[in-house]
Design a binder for these strands. Structure first.
Length: 1058
RNA sequence: GCCGCGGUGGCGGAACUGGUAUACGCGCAGGACUUAAAAUCCUGUGUCCGCAAGGGCUUGUGGGUUCGACUCCCACCCGCGGCACCA
């Protein structure tokens, strides 16, 4: 009775030996022909390893071992991506600090990974939550900050109410949180963003994909995520209407003001404002308003004499402008005004009135006047744009009231009695230009739209602004104001999911304003609707219902006009089409239906919106032109007129980089009252995450770190004054977007990595991991790598030679489903635990089974029966091998007994080598099985008693199997008497001549149907094969007469056509 | 809706560049060994007709190209993944 195969014992033995001998340490010096084989490092979860992990790890291990045996220097490292939400949530649930659970999880997972016998160089392990690592993550952030690629913003972002943190766009899946599935809402809080959309990078991120050996679908996913579209930006002027108000202390300034307006009126792209569009208020120096304008002015400014001018901040409260001195006194409650900044004073005032209003159940109607211009007595213009939204939001912790009462331009003329406070206003330009710009914005706002279809410009019959568009307030006419504001409020309340859920039924409101179509001067209504997104393009569109489905639905609902400008080329009844449209360019929806578009546009389901190309109609002198051609022509025309230009837009948004959570890298920034954002000096890195007891998310948008006063309050590194640390932490992706660089030089405490070492190993030759990272990790990592190339962390000459893409080849492992064909989950109870599998069947069986399940990149269900089949195979190999080892002792000169066996070996070497390179591990293993079957069983007889193989041939077999089942191969190799590990043995080579057989089966077909098979030499000629074939009675049966034609494929087939 | 991937025995899957469809594994059936069972080994196994020899049919469906189609083309159906009013 031979020894049974004891996987537990053998695997333990070899794992220990490999580890002790540091067999898999990457060599110090790698030549140009190195191989960097990388796995996506795991998140150390409490659940430990999932069966999906070993799938990828086994594949990378097979390839690494294969490369080593091929003689390449191999870097094959592993680490842990250990910052992130699950650890923190788990910590909150169990009351254990995330650092503790993370360390424990890492220990467990490291043990699990090691128990599979992967050939990682563990001395290079990196752990992202380790300060010696995240010091460099923070360092990278500082470089981004210093290069203007990290900035703070108040813009509304995706907020997960369950995780209580902001999310990047990439982390939102169908309107829900990628991690927990909770519906994502919008929240306006201060956020750090990384400018991944920067023009220096976005095109490179897009075009870099072309060169990569990545799965096409992943490349496409990234491409679509970046979402580049080419088109044009077109400016539509808003038709003016009276709404402008100006004030001055000096009647003579009115003249100046009017002059100013006149000069604006002459600007080419603006409609000259007529007198009736401008209301001026003349104000005497004594504070009295001039009688003819007084009534109008009172309506805006209230009863007081000159308060607006005196309250130079432009505060307007509760429908009345208050005496500034009194307001301040009350609000400040005795505080010394001279000690406070202007902003602080305003905050006090707003808070005060906010509480007053609360008491009375009303609301505060306070706002800043939007544009603020100061004209000093000597004629200098100082200009500042008040940032109303920001200050109000910041102070009141709530969104700005969209019922902002009005917009006005406010010109404050400083007198000699009240000198201008230099510190309060940013000096923009001593020319009149800024004032002009501000005025022109107000007088004749221009709505800029982005369109990919400038060829349909003549068909624009209305415009739509997104409800959040900043021009909505100023263009809305008084009679539409209420409706518009109501719509804005309801749109603001909707989550993204609501907005997209209602995709079919579009809603909107007319603003009362009209715009002028730049190509034909047509006056078209301006609407607001939430089907237009503020975040894409310019937040405004020109609507062409005749050639855009969305616009068509909207126009249909609100009875807006259709104007057809493109005639489908395929449309045969041109005459009919002309009858309808050429003579009746603009028609209503009802008419559109009456004309039965279904027929006209060839039965398309949304017939009234033809979105294809064609011939221009209803487009003035351009009628008859091809629409593709016209697109270029009209864009050029717009450009010449200064009314538009070619433009490119992207779907990609900047990357929200701060998380309001504890367990992440602190953002190394200090907020100083005087100096603003100050980078923590590099020598002070890492900014360590304080060890605290309370790390629950606050939910208010503040990080839990904000509560730790001792940590938060620091001295400004620049001026030494009081300052506060940034309390947000970085997202999970921060640590993972550069970790493969650290593997090259993991213990360097002076630099992120030694450039020489980076040069040695970069780029990553093969990267293996899940496809779920297509637009998260893989996009971020590419961006950061490009940035690090630009700032020469990666040596310049290296980048020049090797490009700025980090991962040359990418493979995604397919998801492993549960035995029931469903996704593995605890609730379904179909989760397979790798530990159990290893314990029961062994690491080699598990590795081989996972590789044998099916194509590496496919989704495939787990099947324990299949695993049993694999152990059967390994047992059989083991037993047979022990027999051979014994046998060779007695028969050292053993010869192989069958001629075909040699050929089988060469076929096997060839097949397995090629399959490993092509990631076809399943068929490689099938070939191992086929081979074994062929050498064990011949003509129905089992191997017992004789060897069909020479010793060298058996050794080759062990080498071929060693990347797949390294433990068993190593053990057998040793038992054959070898001292050195099989892992650095030379990979076997095959002889193509020996792969070929001397006898080949020729398929004999008659009329394409297989009738027989004949044996001949592979180089047999047509005549030889034909003669052979015709001898067969099976063939002759069908070929009675001379065949009409004979098709011959050398070495394969002959086909008689009769 | 759009984009991508896929559909082959009872199941996981294989098939070069258009050339024997169903390799390999699982399962199943029969046999050997055994007092018996398990394990192991051997044989068979797409499907229909037939005692057999043999023949028909078969790669989601329907067409087409070809001497010959899982493979190429057209239309459709189904499944999976991604995006989702992106102007």
């Amino acid at each position: 009775m031979r020894e049974k195969y004891n996987h537990a014992k053998i695997e333990r033995k070899w794992q220990r030996r490999w580890n002790e001998e540091k067999l898999f340490a990457a060599p110090g010096a790698a030549g140009p022909d190195k191989r960097y084989v990388l796995d996506m490092f795991p998140y150390p979860s409490a659940q430990g390893l999932h069966v999906g992990h070993p799938e990828g790890y086994t594949a990378s291990d097979i390839v690494s071992r294969y490369f080593r045996m091929k003689g390449f220097p191999v870097l094959h490292p592993m680490g842990f991506d250990s910052f992130g939400l699950p650890a923190e949530n788990y910590a909150i649930k169990t009351g254990t600090h995330p650092a503790v659970t993370t360390a424990k999880n890492i220990r467990n997972m490291r043990k699990q990974i090691k128990s599979l016998g992967f050939s990682y160089d563990w001395d290079r392990e990196v752990i992202t939550s380790d300060p010696s690592y995240y010091q460099w993550t923070q360092w990278i952030f500082l470089q981004l900050f210093k290069h203007g690629l990290a900035y703070e913003s108040y813009a509304p972002i995706n907020w997960c109410p369950s995780c209580k943190t902001g999310l990047a766009n990439e982390e939102v899946v169908a309107g829900t949180c990628e991690r927990c599935g909770t519906e994502v809402t919008k929240k306006s809080i201060k956020q750090w963003l990384v400018k991944i959309t920067d023009e220096r990078y976005i095109e490179r991120l897009l075009h870099g994909l072309d060169k990569l050996d990545w799965p096409e679908n992943i490349k496409l996913l990234q491409k679509n995520w970046i979402g580049r579209s080419e088109g044009a930006e077109v400016d539509f002027s808003v038709a003016p209407h009276p709404r402008v108000l100006a004030a001055t202390t000096n009647p003579s300034k009115v003249v100046r003001f009017k002059k100013l307006l006149a000069s604006i009126g002459t600007a080419p792209d603006l409609v000259t404002p007529a007198d009736e569009h401008i209301k001026t208020i003349e104000v005497h120096e004594d504070g009295n308003l001039r009688e003819n304008a007084e009534a109008k002015a009172r309506a805006y400014f209230g009863k007081t004499k000159l308060p607006v001018l005196a309250v130079d901040t432009g505060l307007y409260i509760d429908g009345e402008t208050h005496d500034p001195a009194m307001v301040r006194r009350t609000a400040l409650g005795g505080k010394d005004e001279s000690q406070l900044s202007r902003k602080q004073i305003m905050e006090h005032i707003i808070r005060h009135y906010s509480s007053v209003a609360k008491k009375h159940g009303g609301k505060v109607n306070a706002y800043w006047i939007d544009c603020f211009a100061l004209v000093t007595p000597d004629g200098t213009v100082r200009f500042a744009e008040a940032r109303r939204d920001i200050i109000l939001t910041d102070t009141l912790h709530k969104p700005v009231d969209p019922h902002f009462p009005m917009r006005s331009l406010y010109i404050n003329v400083a007198t000699n009695k009240r000198p201008v406070d230099e510190t309060e206003h940013e000096e923009v330009n001593i020319e009149l230009k800024p004032v002009k710009d501000a005025l022109s914005k107000l007088l004749c706002p221009v709505i800029r739209v982005f369109t990919t279809r400038p060829d349909t410009l003549f068909g624009a019959t209305y415009m739509v602004l997104s409800p959040e568009h900043e021009l909505v307030g100023s263009i809305t006419t008084p009679d539409q104001k209420q409706a518009v504001e109501k719509y804005q409020t309801s749109a603001a309340k909707k989550s993204d999911l609501d907005r997209t859920d209602l995709a079919k039924e579009k809603t909107g409101v007319f603003t009362g304003a009209y715009a002028i179509n730049p190509v034909n001067g047509a006056k078209i209504p301006i609407w607001i609707a939430d089907y237009v997104l503020r975040s894409y393009g310019t937040g405004a569109i020109m609507a062409v219902p005749a050639h855009d489905e969305r616009d068509a639905f909207f126009a249909e609902k609100y009875h807006l006009k259709f104007r057809h400008v493109i005639l489908p080329k395929t449309y045969s009844q041109t005459q009919h089409y002309w009858e309808i449209f050429a003579h009746d360019a603009e028609i209503t929806t009802q008419e559109a239906f009456r004309y039965d578009y279904q027929q006209i546009c060839e039965g398309k389901e949304v017939p009234f919106a033809y979105t294809g190309e064609g011939t221009m109609i209803n487009s003035g002198k351009y009628d008859g032109m091809d629409s593709v051609e016209f697109k270029k022509v009209i864009t050029a025309w717009l450009q010449r007129q200064g009314k538009g230009k070619t433009a490119v837009n992207y779907k990609l948004r900047d990357w929200v980089f701060s998380r309001q959570r504890y367990w992440g890298e602190p953002i190394p920034i200090v907020h100083c009252e005087k100096c603003g954002h100050v980078a923590v000096p590099e020598k002070h890195l890492p900014v360590k995450l304080p060890n605290v007891k309370k790390y629950k998310p606050t939910g208010t948008g503040e990080s839990p770190l904000a509560a730790i006063a001792t940590w938060v309050n620091v001295k400004c590194p620049q001026c030494g004054g009081p300052a506060k640390r940034e309390t947000n932490t970085m997202p999970q992706w921060a640590g993972s977007n550069w970790y493969w660089l650290r593997y090259c030089d993991p213990h360097n405490d002076k630099k992120l990595a030694d450039p020489e070492k980076l040069k040695q190993w970069l780029p990553v030759d093969l990267y293996i991991g899940g496809a779920e990272h297509a637009v998260l990790h893989l996009l971020y990592a590419r961006f950061i790598y490009k940035f690090l190339c630009d700032i020469e962390v990666i040596p310049k000459e290296f980048v020049k030679k090797n490009g700025d893409e980090p991962f040359i080849k990418l493979k995604n492992q397919g998801l492993i489903l549960g035995e029931d064909g469903q996704k593995m989950s605890k609730s379904r109870g179909n989760v397979v635990n790798p530990d159990d599998v290893i314990k029961k069947f062994g690491a080699d069986a598990m590795r081989m089974y996972e590789m044998f399940m099916g194509p590496f990149e496919d989704v495939k269900p787990w099947n324990t029966k299949g695993l049993i089949g694999m152990t059967r195979f390994l047992d059989r190999v083991w037993e047979w091998s022990l027999f051979l080892i014994e046998w060779y002792k007695d028969n050292p000169q053993a010869k192989n007994l069958h001629h075909g066996i040699v050929r089988q070996l060469h076929i096997t070497i060839k097949k397995i080598s090629e399959d490993i390179e092509n990631f076809k591990f399943n068929t490689a293993i099938a070939q191992l099985m086929t081979y074994i079957k062929k050498v064990i069983v011949v003509n129905g007889q089992s191997y017992e008693g004789q060897s069909l193989l020479k010793r060298e041939e058996f050794e080759i077999f062990l080498k071929l199997m060693s990347p797949f089942a390294p433990h068993i191969a190593e053990e057998l190799w040793e038992r054959l008497g070898h001292q050195k590990s099989i892992m650095y043995e030379q990979w076997p080579l095959y002889d193509e001549a020996k792969v070929q057989d001397e006898q080949v089966k020729f398929v004999v077909q008659v009329n394409g149907k297989v009738r027989d098979i004949v044996i001949a030499r592979p180089d047999a000629t047509v005549d030889q094969v034909r003669a052979l074939a015709l001898k067969s009675p099976k063939v002759r049966k069908y070929v009675a007469t001379e065949p009409k034609k004979v098709v011959f494929v050398p070495g394969r087939l002959i086909n008689f056509v009769v």
